[in-house]
Each structure stands twice: as C-alpha cells, then as structure tokens.
C-alpha cells in the first residue's frame, strides 16, 4: 500500500508543518485527534482519554499509509500526547515530536474572528482545527454578541455543539489554537465573566481540572464527556442553555 498520509495531533509547530508540506507536497493530512470510527486498537486502558484513544485507533488503522506523524507533545498538548508519541515510535511509526510552547503576551495576541463569529458552533470548531494545516483568512467574519460561551477542546463527538446557538463564543484551548498560541495558559483560562459558559473537557483528560475550576469560579456548567455523550450530558447542556 502506498504511503500517502501525513498524520498529526494537537497543533504541531507551524515551522514543522511548513517543512513537512515542502517535503511531501502531495500528501494527505489527517488529524489523528478526530474520531473516524475506525476499529479500536485496544492499545489504551479502557478508562482513558477518548482523544488519545482516537490517536491510537487511527494510527494503527492507517499504519500502512502513514508516512510520518507530527506529534504535539509539549504544554501545547498534554502528557498523554508525549506518552503516545513515544509508544507509537516504539511500535515502528516515524514520529516527529513537536513543542509549540512559545506564547505571546495577552495584549499582543492576534484576533480570533472564528471564535467570536455568528457561525454555528460546530462549524467554528471545524474551521479552527482545519486552519491548523490549511491556513485561511477569516478576518472578514463579523463579531456576534455572545449569548453563551463554549470553553474547551474540540469534543470527540462534535454533535453536542449543535445544541448551542450560533452566537456562542469559543474559549479555552480551541480559542488558543485559533490564536496560534496553543500553550498560552492565560488565554486558555480567559472567559467573559458575564457570558454563561459551558466548560467542557474529555473525561480522563487533565484539563477537567481547569474546566471544573473555571466553572466554579464563573458559575458556569462543568461537564466532562467520554467517547459518546450520554442522554444525561445532552440534557445538562440543553437545560443550562434553556434555564440561564
């Protein structure tokens, strides 16, 4: 089988992305964080972050096609990303580790037009993640008045985002990605205090600590969801959006 895929997770350093694009101009880029419903690799423990499970499931399913994996392993991702990169290296993958830890001062950060736009929330998150590799200019998007906030990483199942109204603004790591500052903890912890916000993290992810802390501080809704959201998770978000 032809090797034709450059795989990645997190937000690999832009210099590394550009270098790899030049080396493999015809390669297809695949974000291993995303759930494609490939067969389980059974590599991770049952109780483990769904996103990291996706990384293993996708990597092993696509193994014969993957040229190289660009692996976010620094503060811009998480410890599990670091462990995953090393394990996949041990399993014969060509893994290039990426640390994208440079941060800008808060007042020097670029604008985040997607996060503040009136696009459907699911589309916002999809554009932000797609923009990691295929950079496009979204400065033309108009800013909406935030009715709600969504704080967190792109969820394993994006369908929960359909519950939110279009004038929901994006915060947390997803906003950091749009601002090209995935390790910026100050930006990650920023929310608008008067905007009712859902603080989301994947179950078993260390970002649950941040999400719980911020939800308590800003009187928002803390929610952690494993692979597929339960009816309870949908109901909690729906109730929060209806009742606040």
């Amino acid at each position: 089988m032809t090797k034709d895929i450059i795989a990645f997770w997190g937000y690999p350093h832009p210099d590394l992305i550009n270098k790899t694009k030049n080396l493999y101009p015809d390669a297809k880029w695949v974000d291993l964080d995303i759930c494609f419903n490939y067969p389980p690799s059974k590599f991770t423990p049952d109780a483990y972050c769904g996103i990291i499970k996706n990384i293993f499931d996708n990597s092993f399913y696509l193994k014969e096609r993957i040229i190289k994996i660009l692996a976010g392993v620094g503060k811009d991702k998480c410890d599990s990303g670091f462990f995953a990169a090393n394990l996949l290296k041990n399993e014969g993958f060509d893994v290039e580790m990426s640390y994208f830890e440079q941060t800008l001062p808060f007042d020097k950060l670029p604008d985040v037009p997607i996060s503040k736009s009136n696009l459907p929330l699911k589309e916002k998150i999809e554009l932000i993640t797609a923009n990691i590799v295929e950079k496009k200019d979204y400065s033309h998007l108009e800013t909406s008045n935030a009715a709600f906030g969504f704080w967190g990483v792109p969820p394993n199942d994006l369908n929960i985002l359909k519950l939110f109204p279009d004038n929901t603004h994006v915060f947390g790591w997803s906003r950091c990605v749009e601002a090209k500052n995935p390790a910026n903890i100050e930006l990650e912890m920023y929310v608008e205090p008067d905007v009712p916000t859902v603080f989301f993290a994947q179950t078993f992810c260390s970002k649950t600590l941040l999400a719980k802390y911020l939800a308590d501080k800003y009187n928002g809704l803390y929610i952690d969801i494993d692979a597929i959201p339960s009816n309870s998770a949908y109901a909690k978000i729906e109730a929060f959006l209806r009742l606040r």
């Binding site: 009187n219 809704l221 339960s230 009816n231 309870s232 109901a235 909690k236 109730a239 929060f240 009742l243 606040r244």
Partner: peptide
C-alpha cells in the same frame, strides 16, 4: 435521579443520572 439548584432565583447547577 435528577436535580436542579436555584440560587437567588436563578438556575445555577444540576445533575442527572439518566439510566
């Protein structure tokens, strides 16, 4: 089992063990 909490007449917390 499900619950909701109001604080100062505003909804503020909830949980639902649905199944």
């Amino acid at each position: 089992i499900k619950w909701v909490k109001y604080k100062n007449a505003k909804f503020c917390d909830m949980d639902w063990n649905s199944s």
